[in-house]
Design a protein around this nucleic acid. Structure first.
Lengths: 133, 133
DNA sequence: CTAAGTGCAAAATGTTTGCATACTT
DNA sequence: AAGTATGCAAACATTTTGCACTTAG
């Protein structure tokens, strides 16, 4: 169903190499251009949509209203949630009992099942001042 | 600094009356038009931005990629987080010890301070099948 | 009276689509 | 060979901007 094309590989590699940052579609295109590779913008958008559906990357909106994409599917990322710093875009993978308990509680109390792929915690990371408040 | 204009009131009322749904800019404009009120689109966008900055509403992206706005600042909403159903858009306000413990843990462990206004839990509500999984 | 907000139309931005061609399986 | 992906350019949707005018404080 999904063909493994050169373009898909390139885009995915680009996102994997930058999994600590959030990139928008334009930036991905530029990064590929620097490497003398030209991938049409339609292909970028179409591929990103597919990667989202496969839960390999996430999409979200930054404070300045731009749509960004970020690679999340490392190791056993299935069980992870993600913290994203609104200031610098740093991505932190989290898991653990506190999170599990919260999920359980929400499920029991409200019948609400959290989607770990779509849910992202926004805030400020250590170096951007999170710890001081 | 923020003038209390007729247009601002109208937009805010519209969002308050629909606090259980998510509306996009166009829908807000249409809802006002139905009431024979014409508010320019530029005003809608400019006002929404201000309301977001004031933490009165939140903005987020739905599954079908449209930007939506929703009123959150009821009662003592300051301490709340929000669950949003990806299917029907239902908004649920949550708080409690599980959430507080998670926040604390994340702060201690990672130095990361969660922004409750920006962070939204996505998932499926009871009536959309959240409980059954 | 001054600062802030408004409406319109135009411009800019970001994303999607149609279609002929090329690539994967 | 069939199904899927690509690139281009055009179309589209959404959001932002400039400017003259109005309104709130």
């Amino acid at each position: 169903m999904n063909y493994n094309t050169k373009q898909r590989e390139l885009i995915l590699n680009c996102l994997m190499e930058n999994s600590d940052k959030h990139l928008n579609a334009f930036e991905i295109m530029e990064l590929l251009k620097v490497k003398k590779i030209n991938v049409g913008q339609a292909t970028i958008y179409r591929t990103l949509e597919k990667l989202i559906k496969e839960n390999i990357i996430i999409k979200y909106i930054t404070k300045d209203n731009s749509a960004c994409y970020q690679y999340i599917a490392d190791d056993n990322c299935v069980m992870h949630n993600h913290l994203i710093c609104s200031e610098c875009g740093e991505l932190i993978h989290i898991k653990g009992k506190y999170l599990d308990r919260l999920s359980e509680h929400i499920q029991n109390e409200y019948g609400f099942l959290i989607d770990k792929f779509r849910t992202v915690f926004y805030g400020k990371c250590k170096s951007c001042g999170g710890q001081t408040k």
